[in-house]
């Protein structure tokens, strides 16, 4: 039945080449841990992608309960973690997943750096990768405020103070992020918007570019 449905669609849209391009390419030996165990360092990129998928999914589910408002944010997080079935696991996936993503991105970046894979002609992909790293750090910073507990509030105050020390435009950046003269209701709303809409949109665009470039240029050869 699936075969028939697939054929029906393929007849009209010719979708086979779209996925055959991804499916049929050969993976060379030097990146395959099955041949050389040391090639496991090439897994970090894939694992980063996997953790990001986990982050996106768990984040989507968390917003079913979470409320970005200073009167309710903490209560809703407390409720979803302690009263909702599997809340601890779903919040855990997002909380610990953030740390794991950072570790994986870091290891992936080090692998690319030490294998010199960022050299010509892959400079652009390196730049996109570094931007992805910054976006992910930004997601970490904005996400830290959302549970609206003590450490969230006070760590964000410090973080915004660091932003304010930027020469000339520092105070302006701080006010833009803070949305008000204190870290409060408007900051939480802003951080939520940045964390849930702006940065993920950027993240997905950059990831698409990252993957398209890999397919276009192929992975770099053995050392």
């Amino acid at each position: 039945m699936f075969q028939k449905l697939y054929d029906w669609i393929d007849e009209r849209l010719d979708i086979t080449p779209l996925w055959r391009d991804l499916a049929d390419h050969e993976v060379p030996e030097h990146v395959n841990p099955a041949y050389h165990f040391s090639a496991f360092v090439y897994c970090f990129g894939g694992l980063t992608f996997f953790t990001i998928v986990i982050q996106i999914l768990s984040g989507m589910f968390l917003t079913m309960y979470y409320v970005p408002d200073i009167n309710n944010a903490w209560d809703s997080v407390y409720y979803l973690q302690n009263d909702v079935a599997y809340g601890q696991i779903v919040r855990g996936m997002h909380h610990w997943g953030a740390s794991v993503t950072i570790v994986m991105v870091f290891l992936h970046a080090l692998r690319v750096f030490f294998t010199g894979a960022y050299k010509k002609p892959r400079e652009l992909n390196w730049i996109v990768g570094v931007l992805l790293f910054f976006v992910i750090l930004g997601l970490g910073f904005t996400g830290y405020l959302l549970p609206w507990d003590m450490k969230a509030l006070f760590a964000t105050k410090v973080g915004l103070q660091i932003a304010a020390s930027f020469p000339i435009i520092g105070d302006w950046i701080k006010l833009l992020l803070q949305g008000s003269d204190i870290v409060g209701a408007q900051t939480l709303a802003r951080f939520f918007a940045i964390h849930v809409f702006f940065l993920p949109a950027l993240l997905m665009g950059l990831m698409a570019a990252h993957f398209l470039m890999i397919r276009r240029q192929g992975i770099s050869g053995p050392l």
Binding site: Q81, Q88, G92, W96, P147, M150, L153, F154, A155
Partner: peptide, 25 residues
Amino acid sequence: LTMSDPSPLEKEADPTSSGYIPLPD
């Protein structure tokens, strides 16, 4: 990991509290 270690949640933010020593992630 997610099952054995619940994600930390401190008490609700109190902007009037003084003496709290913040720590980033």
